[in-house]
Computed example of a mutant assay.
Amino acid sequence: MLLPGLPVPVIQASSDFAQLPLDQVMVLAEKGEPRAQVALGVALEHGEGITRAPDMARRWYCRAAARGLVEAWYNLGWLYVNGRGVPRDDGIARYWLEKAARAGLEQAANILPMLEEGQDGSTGCEDVVTLPRIRQACSSPECRDILHLVETLAPEYRLDANLVAAVIEAESGFRPRARSSRGARGLMQLLPATARRFGVKDIWDPEDNLRGGMAYLRWLLAWFRGDLEKVLAAYNAGEQRVIRYRGVPPFAETRGYVRRILDGYGRDAHPYDPAWLEQAIP
Rank of each mutant, 00 (worst) to 15 (best):
Q279L: 12
R177W: 12
V27G: 00
R175G: 04
V81P: 09
N75F: 05
D263E: 14
E98F: 03
R63D: 05
R179E: 15
T130Q: 08
D23V: 02
C125K: 05
A184F: 04
Y245M: 06
M1L: 11
A269S: 15
A18T: 02
L217R: 01
I281N: 06
V200F: 01
E207W: 01
V164P: 12
P250T: 11
P7I: 07
P34L: 13
E45Q: 15
G41W: 06
D273I: 00
P132D: 02
A161H: 03
Q24G: 05
L217P: 04
A43M: 04
F174D: 04
A165S: 15
T152W: 00
L149K: 14
R244N: 10
T254E: 12
Y95G: 00
A39P: 00
W223N: 10
V231A: 06
G49W: 08
I203E: 02
H270E: 14
W60A: 03
G85T: 12
E156K: 13
W223H: 15
A13P: 02
P249S: 12
P274W: 02
R52E: 15
A237Q: 08
S122R: 15
D89C: 00
A66E: 13
A66L: 06
Q136A: 15
A101V: 01
P250N: 07
P113C: 08
R94Q: 08
A103F: 03
M214R: 01
C143S: 09
T254P: 12
D120W: 08
G68C: 09
A161G: 08
A18K: 05
D90K: 07
F17M: 09
